[in-house]
Design a protein around this nucleic acid. Structure first.
Lengths: 182, 182
DNA sequence: CTCCAGAAGTATACAATGTAAACTCAATCA
DNA sequence: TGATTGAGTTTACATTGTATACTTCTGGAG
């Protein structure tokens, strides 16, 4: 008796595997093919293609969160924030297609739970540096900064010279954290 | 004798008009239909759909640049940087579909000229605040910050409470500009 | 055991999309 | 005049997401 995992999980895994190698969003049919089922089989487990993709994106946020948690393991808070930022960008570089899927507006209204968990790791760290009233804004700023650098780089809009500035820019931001309060 | 504008321009204008109303990327056929020509006519002026979309994105960057130039018209440099940042985000909010198109990775390797011009407006301002060696990184950081906030908001990943923090976060960043140097 | 209801998957069909190939037709120029 | 060429059309095709209708298997209720 084999270990049986449902088709639902198989489909998500197949989609993730395709996202690793292809740079475009997979077609529903290609995912079904990779899972060894017919083109209509996924509809037994997801309402439509967007439903499957939202589940995949959710999985992506869980992966991202675990990466951030590991990066966060530093004694110095600013160092931890910096490490989280770099880990975020490295994740985007390593999984460009998945990363784009995660922030595609088409799937924005599903799987919000995983997103919040993901950014809590950062918010908690920033709360240990800044006064309470500045935490949400600073967290948003940090999140946006790395998100923006990742988006710009993945869109091919970064000159080669600027590519090295990513870490510098993040360092600049982290150093400046808390400077503009009063 | 009427003023004759070529089909090329008509197609770009039609695509821009569709992008204003629809939230999805227009189909090539819908653009052709809006321009009153057959589905194959665009191929006389663009190598493929990506070619047309790249031209449209380029137009978007020109529009964005002119918005930034206007916002930049302030005596205080930091105020000007802040205004540019808000203008950037407002542009994304007002033209979500066009904005997404501009940063779609599929068209990343066309129209790089307009992109550079766009960010020169910001780089010049930052050069008036920071020492030379920090300008490129700080410009990248600022650009990324607003890009990230726009992307996150357009992806529907911003809680309503956080939406008001966008301006706060940008202000925080601008105030902190230059704090981490030494 | 029988039977059958529902779950899970398949086969087929269809409309929309990007694009290749072949055609039309007017303007240009030897 | 007559060939050429640029601009557009028509037709055709593979690929996609998905609706509809079919099959097949399984786990109880009688």
């Amino acid at each position: 008796m084999d270990i049986q995992i449902g088709l639902r999980e198989t489909l998500i895994a197949a989609a993730l595997r395709i996202l690793e190698t292809e740079s475009e969003e997979p077609t529903l049919r290609s995912v079904a093919r990779a899972a060894g089922v017919s083109a209509m089989a996924p509809y037994r487990h997801f309402p439509d293609k967007a439903g499957l993709m939202a589940a995949v994106a959710n999985r992506g946020f869980e992966m991202l969160r675990s990466v951030l948690v590991i990066a966060d393991d530093k004694p110095d808070p600013r160092e931890a924030v910096f490490a989280q930022g770099m880990a975020f960008i490295d994740f985007a570089r390593a999984n460009p297609a998945l990363f784009r899927l995660m922030y595609s507006h088409q799937y924005g209204h599903a799987g919000i739970d995983a997103v919040r968990d993901t950014y809590d790791v950062l918010a908690r760290r920033i709360a240990s540096i800044l006064p309470m009233h500045a935490v949400t804004a600073a967290t948003l700023a940090c999140r946006s900064l790395v998100q923006g650098m990742a988006t710009i780089e993945l869109a091919g809009r970064l000159a080669p010279a600027e590519r090295d500035d990513v870490a510098v820019a993040l360092g600049l931001f982290v150093s400046g954290l808390g400077a503009g309060l009063g």
